[in-house]
Nucleic acid binder design. Structure first.
Lengths: 325, 325
DNA sequence: CTGAAAGCGCTAACAT
DNA sequence: ATGTTAGCGCTTTCAG
């Protein structure tokens, strides 16, 4: 057993501060039901600072049974500026509650989510994608006190996003819609939600569901799709996201079609490039930071045994109207 | 102390398999210098499967002194499809070596990198950005057996990326270059590297350094920059990345300037949207997956006390020539 | 108000 | 070839 240079432990701090390890633990954790005199408290804090001491997570987790680490599983590809803001807000809110966030990119071969969860002994696992039962089961067994999926949040936001896209187009007078689906299999789950939402809006307006076509980030492919939609009397299309929408705009340009005249197009996610598209792209935005905050609230609630609050209504995705529709 | 329903431990497995805990540990870890009969081995494995047992990371780390967890710090904003591929490959290669990767989004308030490192008791910390000394120090103290920064890898790749952009333009006959810098402060470090590389290429060709202008993802802003470059006799510009390049193309369109005639533009990173830009955007690509693989190699080497191998030359960024230059 | 002591689940000597 | 045992660093009763 090769044991490298011993790190500073709670015992070192205790010695320096002239107290016992227990006392150090008490002040560091603000353990309730203890009344440490301010003087002692300061002495301990000073020793901690001086020694640069940080409690070792594994020991703490082992002893207390809770690591206070939250593991967020991010679906494979959909990473973008929006997700970044979301994760940051999530991490910040969690930190505020004394929890530490780390993330795991799902979908890659190698470690499965339960493996990672066990390895870091996470207290909570959050996922943007609904987790399948087997995984959820494993996670519980692997020590995640609770498994929190955003099925109630992100999932339904996706659906409402599709719904808004379609509603906007319908309100503009369009009666036959198209839907541009991404090709990538890993985006399919989210894409299906969005498409589903759009279909709901159509049904509610007494229209046929959108004509969904698979596309990719390639001008020739989107040009083909655009012609097909035209042929089928589609006058407006919802794109799975802004990237697809921008590619569609490019394909239309190649096919000598213009937006919104020949085909109106609306994207989703409001990526920065949407505003410099030609024409500027209408899109759906939602407050990811707010989502991050409520997800954190839910995690905290869950950890303290309370029921999670329903997500605030202000999470509603909303239309950003630009020239493409 | 609320202790929730006990999880299955190594003792449960031992009992079920009719052996001792040590034996279970041996077969699970392939502990060298032990010769477990195949029959026993299978019995243990069977019990593990049946009970769905996974060793608890914290206990393992505490006992052995190594968590085998690698923590990757990702700089704030530069997340994109490229980074995703990199992280996935990194995780996969690491998993292959028995290591588990988790990531942390740097830059957000809340937990600092050393905090996270201590919380999960990471064995290794890797960062795409160079780490400042204080952080590196804290990391070492916080238990990262080694701190591995990619200063040698990613850092220099950034510089070589800028160099390639400029070299390409110079080879095309341009004698006065511009550089489009991002506005965001957090991108500055990388941007400076890229600009520096471009300046090197200029110097080597006996040219003045590029005229660097700060821009943002806004058509009016990039149009202004484009006019300024024209005024200063710049004929070609390197953009910090493809997003900026696309915005510049849009600004030029607004200013009735065309690429490459009025101003040639080259981006960097080869994002999917680059190929559907109008005109299709020349850019710099590099094999992020290869970077992920060599970074993993370096981590493994470092963990076993060997010197990291120099990164393979095939990591060189290369030009993707499209119509914008 | 503070300290002593018993573990948390696992690994790795050391016995057998 | 397998079992016994002593911790790893910390938290948390329980005494003082």
């Amino acid at each position: 057993m090769t044991r490298p240079a011993k790190r500073t432990t709670i015992a070192d701090v205790a010695r320096t501060a002239g107290v016992s390890g227990a006392t150090v633990s008490f002040v560091l954790n603000d353990t309730p039901g203890q009344s440490i005199p301010e003087e002692t408290r300061q002495r301990v804090l000073e020793a901690v600072r001086q020694l640069g001491y940080r409690p070792r997570g594994s020991a703490r987790a082992l002893a207390s049974g809770r690591s206070d680490v939250v593991l967020l599983s991010i679906p494979h590809l959909s990473i973008g500026p929006g997700i970044t803001r979301f994760v940051e807000q999530f991490a910040t809110s969690l930190a505020h509650a004394g929890l530490t966030l780390v993330t795991h990119l799902a979908g890659a071969p190698g470690r499965s989510l339960p493996d990672v969860c066990a390895a870091i002994d996470a207290s909570v696992v959050a996922s943007l994608d609904p987790l399948d039962d087997e995984t959820a089961q494993a996670l519980r067994g692997a020590g995640a006190d609770i498994v929190f999926t955003t099925e109630l949040a992100a999932h339904s936001i996706m659906r409402r996003t599709g719904r808004r896209q379609a509603e906007h187009l319908i309100a503009l007078g369009h009666r036959r819609l198209g839907y541009a689906l991404p090709q990538h299999a890993l985006l399919r789950k989210i894409a299906d939600e969005r498409l589903h939402g759009a279909a709901d809006a159509c049904a509610q307006a007494g229209l046929e569901p959108p004509l969904a076509l698979e596309t990719k980030l390639d001008t020739a492919a989107t040009a083909r799709a655009a012609r097909r939609w035209r042929r089928e009397a589609v006058t407006a299309v919802c794109a799975y996201n802004d990237e697809i929408a921008i590619a569609l705009l490019a394909g239309m340009r190649q096919a000598r079609l213009t937006a919104p005249g020949d085909l109106a197009v609306i994207g989703a996610d409001d990526i920065p490039l949407a505003q410099v598209a030609d024409p500027p792209l209408s899109t759906i935005a939602f407050d990811l930071e707010k989502v991050g905050r409520s997800l954190a609230d839910a995690v905290v609630a869950s950890l303290s045994g309370r029921e999670p609050q329903p997500a605030p209504a202000s999470l509603e995705p909303h239309v950003i109207q630009r020239a493409s529709t």
